[in-house]
Design a protein around this nucleic acid. Structure first.
Lengths: 238, 238
DNA sequence: ACCTGAACACCGTTCAAGT
DNA sequence: ACCTGAACACCGTTCAAGT
């Protein structure tokens, strides 16, 4: 029951290579195998071509990774342009959810957005794109924030997104990811589905393990977002 | 005016290899050149030995990286054991600052602590160590938190640390890092010290660039930490 | 017991050469 | 104009061999 859907030009692109196609293909590859597994040679193979051909469209591997990030964040700018907000609260909420959707749809690519070295110190991950940051600053300024407050909000908002989404994406990506080791049967003091971590028999971690493993990503995100907005509101009204 | 100090057993360890020495050396290498640059061969060279010798003490590159993380977080447990706290607020404050100190002292190694795949879903970066998490859970339980609240605090506390420290470490690490490209002179529409980012002439980013580049890492960290503690206090008293 | 040489299967990237 | 073969300088890792 494999979906084939909208990716009919997957392999053997019949001689029509292009930068867009390379980046598309790279993103798809990363979604499946992670950025670590992406090599010029394997990517080329997916495209039915030799590795060296890619260098016509791309200056190298780093260029591809950067382009993938840009592609992902391009979607965020688009989303913000279509549904425009009436209040700064609405704007931040939409932006937060758009980025969260991105992280959930591309859990294995999101670490790139979140952890690649920013090109400049004012490009804070995961809002790692000039377009998005520009949009952010002009919008908040438009809602009456003065310079200091815009910058302050930018800082706290990015920290919030990074802290909440990177971890959630990692968990989400781990589930999706192919099993690397076929689970050695002999290490369990208790029923231990947690890979190679050995738990002492009388630990708090063990006692709280199930509760700790619960996924409350979404509601925690919502609550933390609300808290952040409240905090900003207080600053503004002062 | 180079400091030589306490690293007299740097290269050519005179035939006394050991796992600790390998991990030590790896951490020092990563502090200087980042984890990306670490190869078995170069690390071995630093130790005055061939690459294959390392496999006596270490199962491979991944094992080394994991051991470096463990070493770094081991220091956190120690710090917590020596100065023990009277209140949960004091505890969380000490822990937060200990992890922040770690991030600032090893900005190029900290991404490992923060972004490597956790071995289990309840090991949330950057508290990526069974010992630290166990310490955290027992301490808070000892201060009277019930199970749900301990777990909730664990979640929000880790998100807070990740969001604030990963970015700060990246900025801190970028300053320390060796210059990769010798800065092409011809791309500046304005005095542009920000690598290859080209700013449109009438952008908000350009106008706010200096303010955006200011480093308020520490005070933001303090403020956000206070806010978090306040929020927890509210939950507890309910 | 501890280290190594040689080898294997991979990398990214360059460049001259093919069509 | 677009693609490629061959080559270079690197990787991580294995294994039989040295001392």
């Amino acid at each position: 029951m494999e979906q084939v859907g909208s990716s009919e030009r997957n392999r053997r692109s019949a001689r029509g290579l292009s930068r867009d196609l390379v980046v598309d293909s790279a993103l798809r590859f990363i979604d499946l195998h992670g950025a670590q597994g992406l090599s010029m040679r394997k990517l080329a193979q997916d495209l039915g071509v030799e590795a060296m051909s890619l260098y016509r469209y791309v200056t190298g591997r780093e260029d591809i990774l950067e382009a993938v990030v840009t592609r992902l964040l391009g979607g965020v700018t688009e989303a913000l342009d279509t549904q425009l907000a009436q209040t700064w609260q609405g704007y931040l909420q939409t932006l937060a959810h758009t980025v969260r959707d991105l992280a959930m749809q591309h859990p294995r690519a999101f670490p790139l957005v979140a952890t690649r070295h920013p090109a400049a110190p004012w490009l804070r991950p995961p809002l790692r794109s000039l377009d998005v940051v520009e949009h952010f600053l002009t919008t908040l300024t438009g809602f009456g924030f003065d310079d200091d407050r815009v910058v302050g909000v930018y800082r706290s908002f990015t920290s919030f997104l990074l802290g909440h989404l990177l971890l959630e994406a990692a968990l989400h990506g781990a589930e999706t990811s192919p099993v690397e080791e076929p689970m050695d049967e002999g290490d369990a003091q208790v029923g231990n589905r947690d890979a190679d971590v050995v738990l002492p028999a009388d630990s708090e971690v063990l006692r709280l393990r199930d509760k700790l493993s619960e996924d409350h990503g979404e509601e925690e995100f919502e609550i933390a977002l609300e808290t952040l907005l409240d905090r900003i509101e207080l600053q503004v009204s002062q």
